[in-house]
Each structure stands twice: as structure tokens, then as C-alpha cells.
């Protein structure tokens, strides 16, 4: 049996202190496998983003354990967590977070640069990643010259260019119209199934349901339900 790419066991997270203390997560157990696109759904304040941050090694849990590709994050220093992200996790954000002063190629190349991959080879890989998301013709464009959908594709190219096993996406279609949203979901679905990566998407949007292999519902810091699907819309 193959180990899951992400394993969270009994994860709890308390945010704030004193009277403002909030239990954002209460004993979450979840694992993500390669080849699956998972939707994490729940109302506002249910703990989706906190869970995403912990699974993405940006936050450490107050209780419980996280294993990323077999490596535990227990006791990890911020630099160790950054290394784990660099090696195993790609991120796609709701508001893209592209660098406005860099071209599409350089935005993608940045993910390689932080991994120490530089020079011509990095440029070629960045262009290949852009081609995979259908932006081979926009490699020199700056974010302001791209539509919202195109900017999100650049962000996806940046997330996949380093070949991470895990892609975590926070509301990747929220800022997009329906057509662009579908296109983005098809790309993410393809990344999950064809490249055998674990893709976790946090969303409110019910229009994304048809693209999921699995849906995890979270409420009040707890996973309340999971659904799996066999047939996907292409």
C-alpha cells in the first residue's frame, strides 16, 4: 500500500490568545493521495483556510501530527517548513499573487529560482509549464496585460513547475467568471489525474463539484462528511 502524500492526524489549532482565543480546528484527520482532486468545502469560519495553511506547512498545529510525503512537521523550524513547501507543495491563491513587475515566464521561473534552479534550463522549464496551461503565446506578458483567467493559469504554472507532489489551491476560481473557472478546474483536474499529484482545493463554489474525485466537508473546525465520486466531467 502506498503512503498518502499528506497525512493529518488529530490536528487541532488554537488561534489568538486570552479572551480572543479561538479553536479553529478540532481534531481533524485527513489524508490526500496522488491522482485525486479533493474539494474542501464549508461555510466561512469553518476552518478551511487554517487547515489549508497547516497542510501547506505555513502554520504548525497546536495538537496532532502532519506528515508531508512521509516527513513529519513536528518540531520543524520555519526554515524547515519552507524547505518542505519548496520540495513538495505548490500553491494556487484566490488573488493569484503574481509579481506585477515580472513577466509570466519570470513569475513561473521564480518557483524554480527559490529551489536553486537557474539559468537557461529554468527558463525552458518555465515556458514548458506555461505551455501546459495554454499560455505558450503569453510568456513575455506582464500580469497587468493578462486577463484574470490567464493570471490564474500563470499561478498554476508556477505551482507545478517545480514538480511538487501536492497542489493546494485556495478558492482558485473565486475571482473568475464561469468559463474561466471551468478551464482552471480542468487544468487542475488534469494535473491531479494525469500527473498523479494530490490536489486539494478550498472552495465555496458548488459549480466545482463535478470536477472533484472527493469532497471533504468541514464545519466548526471538524470534518463532518466525505464523499467520493467515480466518474468525472472532463
Amino acid at each position: 500500500m502506498t503512503a498518502s502524500l499528506i497525512e493529518a492526524k488529530g490536528v487541532a489549532k488554537v488561534l489568538g490568545s486570552g479572551a480572543g482565543k479561538v479553536a479553529a480546528l478540532k481534531g481533524v484527520t485527513l489524508s490526500l493521495d496522488g491522482g485525486e482532486l479533493t474539494l474542501l468545502m464549508g461555510p466561512s469560519g469553518s476552518g478551511k483556510t487554517t487547515l489549508l495553511s497547516i497542510l501547506g506547512c505555513m502554520l504548525t498545529p497546536t495538537e496532532g501530527t502532519i506528515r508531508i510525503c512521509g516527513r513529519s512537521t513536528a518540531g520543524a523550524e520555519p526554515e524547515d517548513l519552507a524547505l518542505l513547501r519548496r520540495q513538495h507543495v505548490g500553491f494556487v491563491f484566490q488573488s493569484f499573487h503574481l509579481f506585477p513587475t515580472l513577466s509570466a515566464t519570470d513569475n513561473v521561473r521564480l518557483a524554480l529560482d527559490v529551489r536553486g534552479e537557474r539559468f537557461r534550463k529554468a527558463k525552458v522549464r518555465a515556458r514548458e509549464a506555461l505551455a501546459k496551461v495554454g499560455l505558450a503565446h503569453k510568456t513575455k506578458a506582464f500580469p497587468r496585460q493578462l486577463s484574470g483567467g490567464e493570471q490564474q493559469r500563470v499561478a498554476i504554472a508556477r505551482a507545478i513547475v517545480g514538480n511538487p507532489s501536492i497542489i493546494l489551491a485556495d478558492e482558485p476560481t473565486a475571482a473568475l467568471d464561469g468559463e474561466n473557472g471551468r478551464a482552471i478546474m480542468e487544468i487542475l483536474g488534469g494535473i491531479a489525474r494525469e500527473q498523479r499529484r494530490a490536489v486539494l482545493i478550498v472552495t465555496h463554489d458548488p459549480r466545482l463539484l463535478p470536477f472533484a474525485d472527493r469532497i471533504v466537508h468541514i464545519e466548526d473546525g471538524r470534518i463532518v462528511r466525505e464523499e467520493r465520486y467515480g466518474v468525472k466531467q472532463s
Binding site: 519552507a82 518542505l84 519548496r86 491563491f93 518557483a111 505551482a159
Partner: peptide, 16 residues
Amino acid sequence: LPEFATLRAIGSSSRY
């Protein structure tokens, strides 16, 4: 700062 946070999120080291 948001750009530096993005860099950090995508795994850059502090040194970078």
C-alpha cells in the same frame, strides 16, 4: 510585503 509573503509561501528561504 505581500510579494515577500508569496515568496515565503512558495518555499523561498529567508536567505533568498
